[in-house]
Simulated assay, not measured.
Amino acid sequence: MLQDFVLQSPDLVLKADSNVTLSYKRDSRNYITQVFAEQLPAVKTGFFNVHMSKGIIIQPHWHTNVTETLVVITGKVKTSVFNPFTQERMTYKLGPGQVSVFPRGWFHWIVAKSDDVHLLAIFDRPTPDIVYGSDFLRSIPKEIMNRAYGVNEEDYVKAVAPIQESVILGPPVSGATQPW
């Protein structure tokens, strides 16, 4: 039997406040806090505590090393995940108490469909890697988009120009939005 030395520590703490460690803040209504091993060494998983207002999106992204389980606490969201085996998008409307799973490596996103959304994004490992679509898109050279997909180079440059940094809770503050 493997011994868990963290649990044998004389300084063992088995609680944490999920409101303390800020992971990302867009504004006072849209922010993410967290509890992972750094905040609670005895935890074998971790989670993001997410707060969103209507129309805000957790941008398209994927995790290279974890499966994510999303639990809606309050509000309504629409989740979408791209199934790499069927090449289809799977979309779900969720409310309080409902759950969605995003398997490791599957591209997914979440849109707040009401104000005062609160959800937990729980991971099966204590340190999730995250690849953001915004980072991926802005790093692809215009010549590659043209060669691979026939996308007009100037159109591509214009399309990704508003993406100046990682967009976690979008749209970008400076960007225009369309109703969805």
Rank of each mutant, 00 (worst) to 15 (best):
Q87H: 09
Q34V: 13
F82L: 10
P128T: 02
Y24S: 14
V111A: 04
R125L: 00
V160M: 06
M1V: 08
A16Q: 14
V72H: 08
A16Y: 14
T21C: 09
I163V: 12
L14E: 09
T91M: 07
G55T: 15
L94N: 14
E68C: 01
S139V: 04
L120S: 08
D116E: 08
P41I: 00
T91Q: 14
P103R: 03
I32M: 14
A159W: 14
G150H: 02
P84Y: 10
L94H: 11
S139I: 11
V13L: 05
N30C: 13
R29A: 10
R125S: 05
P162A: 05
S53D: 06
A148W: 01
V13W: 02
E68W: 02
L70I: 12
V99Q: 08
D27S: 04
F85A: 05
P41F: 00
S114R: 08
M90I: 15
I122N: 07
Y156H: 02
E154V: 03
N49Y: 10
D115T: 02
H61R: 15
L94T: 07
S134F: 09
L2G: 13
T177E: 15
D17V: 15
R26L: 12
I122Q: 09
T45I: 14
V66L: 04
P162Y: 01
V117T: 02
E88I: 03
Q98S: 12
S53E: 02
Q8I: 00
N19M: 04
S53Q: 11
H51M: 03
T67R: 00
V101Q: 13
Q164W: 01
L137H: 09
T64R: 13
G105R: 01
N146C: 07
N65F: 03
K93R: 10
Q8C: 06
V6T: 15
Y24K: 06
